[in-house]
């Protein structure tokens, strides 16, 4: 089966410090229908990987390539990558004052699909997912993320993932700072989204979010490279022993 995401020998440096090498030859292949997990100590390059896939202006690719569905997306603009079907849930989602959640969702949905959407059916779809995610209905008319708690902001990211329905969803530490119930809700959201045609890349520190998910592969990222790949038992191992054995 073809790879949905294929990253070959990826090297990056920081935009504001060209001497700072972050990713140092990273390789990764994700097929449709798979859930991958990336774990690694702080500063190993996990978030850099997520943002480099999205052409973040904060990183420069010096070598290597990123392909989606066989198409090289390394040099595409951030919004073009989104339109190709990549989504990222942010560690710290932005607030957009004066723009309601519903307005935001409609605007982004139209940007991604390039089509004018039917408001009535779209609102029904929003209501369906906010219920599933235990979000209060009133949230959709509130200003985007303004005054939302950390947990509400993360649920909002999952809501967007469900509505935008990307081919590849990258979840960058979506579970960090969440209580047990909120983590369960996030897992529930991932299962709602997941099917044989799409894939999930979860970046995390803990295994809590993985409970209830069918994880295909776990990668250990240390110093800009994937040093070990295994099945879900590898995550359990890390939870118990930490990264000691991978750090020189």
């Amino acid at each position: 089966m073809k790879n949905l995401l294929e990253i070959k020998n990826l090297h990056t440096i920081a935009e504001d410090d060209h001497d700072k090498k972050i990713l140092k030859g990273l390789n990764l292949k994700i097929k449709k229908g798979e859930i991958h997990v990336i774990m690694g100590p702080n500063g190993s390059g996990k978030s850099t990987l997520a943002n480099t896939i999205f052409s973040s202006p904060r990183y420069i690719v010096t070598e290597g390539s990123i392909s989606l569905d066989g198409e090289d997306i390394t040099k595409l603009a951030t919004n073009e990558i989104a339109k190709k079907g990549v989504f990222m849930s942010f560690q710290t989602p932005e607030e957009i004052p004066g723009v309601s959640l519903a307005q935001f969702l409609k605007t982004t949905k139209q940007s991604i699909t390039g089509e004018k959407i039917n408001l009535m059916s779209f609102i029904k779809e929003i209501d369906k997912y906010t219920k599933e995610l235990n979000m209060k209905e009133e949230y959709t008319s509130r200003e985007f993320n303004v005054g939302f708690s950390g947990g509400e902001k993360k649920k909002n990211e999952i809501l967007q993932m469900l509505l935008l329905n990307p081919k590849l969803a990258i979840l960058d530490e979506t579970d960090s700072g969440l209580d047990v119930d909120a983590i369960k809700t996030v897992s529930k959201g991932i299962n709602l989204y997941k099917n044989d045609e799409n894939a999930v890349l979860i970046i995390t520190h803990s295994t809590k979010i993985l409970k209830g998910l069918k994880v295909d592969k776990v990668h250990i990222l240390v110093d800009g490279k994937i040093v070990k790949t295994g099945d879900s038992s590898l995550a359990q191992e890390i939870e118990e022993n930490g990264y000691k054995e991978f750090l020189k």
Binding site: S56, T78, N79, A82, V99, E143
Partner: peptide, 20 residues
């Protein structure tokens, strides 16, 4: 950047922020 990861171009992202 956040809005661009949601498919908006840079100018559309700015417009939405200004509008808000």
């Amino acid at each position: 950047y956040y809005l661009m990861t949601r498919g908006l171009s840079e100018s559309e992202a700015k417009a939405l922020i200004v509008q808000g």
